[in-house]
């Protein structure tokens, strides 16, 4: 994989690395805020891949998808943060390790 010229390959590689970093964030961090950020990272990685494909195929519909993804991301962040606030209010914590009430 040569450095130049930058093509679809490079964008996809970036997308995969970003996605893996997002996964790691979600898995490794315990702060629920940062876990939410990890999710946003993964969504962004996806967006990058979609837009790269869109450009490569000269297909505008990809950009619409990205717009929809962003809407979902915004909604998800809003709801996630609301849950977080509710959790903090009742349990005084945002630590994922301590919020394990829904289990056997």
């Amino acid at each position: 994989m040569s450095l130049f010229p930058v093509g679809l390959q490079h964008y996809l590689a970036l997308s995969v690395i970003l996605f893996a970093l997002g996964i790691l964030t979600v898995i490794l961090r315990r702060n629920l805020l940062i876990i939410l950020m990890g999710i946003e990272l993964m969504l962004n990685a996806g967006n990058v891949a979609i837009l790269a494909f869109s450009k490569f195929n000269a297909a505008m519909s990809g950009q619409v998808y990205v717009l929809l993804t962003m809407t979902v991301a915004a909604a998800e962040a809003a709801v996630g943060l609301a849950i977080l606030i509710a959790l903090f209010r009742t349990r005084k914590t945002v630590n994922a390790d301590e919020a394990t009430y829904l289990r056997w």
């Binding site: 490794l28 961090r29 315990r30 994922a96 919020a99 394990t100 009430y101």
Partner: peptide, 9 residues
Amino acid sequence: QSGNVGTYA
């Protein structure tokens, strides 16, 4: 079923 989000992920 640990209840831990990270493990679930």
